[in-house]
């Protein structure tokens, strides 16, 4: 299974700024290996984030998102101590969820 995400969530007033660093190969399916065979695509397709159980972000990604993807988003109505959860699903159906506490 994939490595954990690094999630940092900081409250600024009423707003929460969330920064996520995921660990994923993000293979495009365009590259060829040394034998000339196409390396199959392998990338995160869906990302969703929840704040205390309520969805705050839904994203769909293609293979053009960089390897080990970075993501930043901001939502309001959060405060220190709240939980932010981020989930990704890749095109092989692999899934990973990590949680962070708003600081």
């Amino acid at each position: 299974m994939a490595d954990p995400m690094k999630i940092r969530a900081n409250a600024m007033g009423d707003k929460v700024i969330v920064k996520v660093l995921m660990s994923h190969e993000m293979e495009t399916g365009q590259r060829k290996d040394s034998a000339g065979k196409t390396i199959p695509a392998w990338f995160i397709q869906q990302v969703s984030a929840t704040h205390n159980g309520k969805t705050v972000l839904n994203a769909q990604w293609g293979p053009a998102v960089s390897k080990n993807p970075f993501l930043e988003f901001r939502f309001s109505g959060g405060k220190a101590g709240d939980k932010v959860q981020v989930t990704w699903t890749d095109n092989k159906g692999e899934k990973r969820t990590d949680e962070a506490t708003v600081g």
Binding site: K15, A59, W61, V65, F73
Partner: peptide, 15 residues
């Protein structure tokens, strides 16, 4: 990439 924002989320995305 595409990002959808439910109400309460700022219209901002960075990647």
């Amino acid at each position: 990439a595409s990002f959808e924002f439910p109400a309460g989320t700022e219209a901002f995305a960075s990647t």
